[in-house]
């Protein structure tokens, strides 16, 4: 319950934050809302010697629709995403995903940046970000770079962010008009995390699927984009058989996680089932 002691820094600028992080090295941690970091610190699974609180960086609290992309700052809370009119108009999948995270209190304080950079393999954000082809922006003293969501998640609590990099925002291409999307989550009843979460983003021309993104979280140690399943759909008529064939691909070759809540075999089954159901929901929606 009680974190180990640390030094606390509240930088006034992103540059200062990056400099502090560079100084602090491996033992420094950046904090946004604190809802991924603090739980680890309370259990002393994380014991940073320096915590750099980004709370004064108001520029990271913005949601902007800009040049065909939604730019969401790292400090934007899940609740802001859930209720933002810009998000709901341009990309309701993000709002739906945000609303399925944790609970109201957690959504009020937890941030998209903090959650994404934490890299929890059962978090909700990765599914939507992968399905939508989002990019994350990483900033260090040396400058900024963008990393595609598909290249960002590397393993349990492991991401492409270097120790000296701050995740400053997420950029999501605004789906073309007519895109249908949904997120289906099988909730781990105790923690509220995803046993399996499937985000589907679908564009159709008549009965034919013109483009599709399927993001999968919870199933494996790394959230991933189900490209084989997507390939089964792209350019095809969305018949029940086609949907079933695509869903069947979603866990192929995946080293599925197993724990007391669901074995790997069941998780794989749930991934297939919910992929099929998510596609159907998207079509029905």
């Amino acid at each position: 319950m009680i974190p180990a002691a640390f030094d606390y820094i509240v930088p006034d600028s992103l540059e200062a934050a990056a400099a502090s992080l560079a100084d602090g090295g491996e033992n420094a941690k950046v904090m946004a809302g604190g809802h991924s970091l603090l739980p680890m610190m309370k259990l002393r699974l994380a014991q940073p010697s320096v915590v750099i609180d980004l709370k004064r960086l108001d520029s990271l609290r913005q949601i902007q629709a800009d040049g065909g992309a939604l730019r969401i700052g790292a400090l934007v809370t899940h609740h802001q995403v859930e209720t933002s009119s810009e998000v709901n108009e341009n990309c309701p999948l993000l709002a739906l995903t945000a609303g399925s995270i944790g609970d109201p209190q957690v959504r009020n304080r937890g941030t998209i940046g903090g959650s994404v950079v934490h890299g929890d393999p059962a978090a909700d954000w990765p599914a939507a970000l992968l399905a939508l082809g989002a990019e994350v922006t990483l900033t260090s003293s040396g400058g900024s770079r963008s990393v595609a969501a598909g290249d960002f998640f590397l393993g349990p609590l492991t991401t492409a962010a270097e120790p000296n990099e701050i995740l400053t925002g997420v950029s999501v291409p605004v789906p073309a008009a007519g895109t249908r999307a949904t997120y289906r989550k099988v909730k781990q009843k105790a923690s509220g995390f995803a046993i399996v979460g499937i985000a589907v983003c679908l564009r159709t021309d008549g009965d034919t699927c013109t483009d599709v993104g399927i993001g999968v979280t919870g199933l494996a140690g790394t959230p991933f984009r189900a490209t084989a399943a997507e390939d089964q759909l792209r350019g095809k008529a969305l018949t029940a058989d086609a949907v079933a064939a695509a869903a069947a691909q979603v866990a192929e070759g995946v080293d599925a996680l197993g724990d007391i809540h669901a074995s790997g075999e069941f998780r794989s089954h749930l991934a297939r089932l919910n992929t099929a159901r998510a596609i159907q929901d998207a079509l029905d929606g």
């Binding site: 009843k189 105790a190 923690s191 007391i260």
Partner: peptide, 11 residues
Amino acid sequence: LVTGSLMDYAV
């Protein structure tokens, strides 16, 4: 103890 907290023990 695998269910060592409310993260794994559901009420």
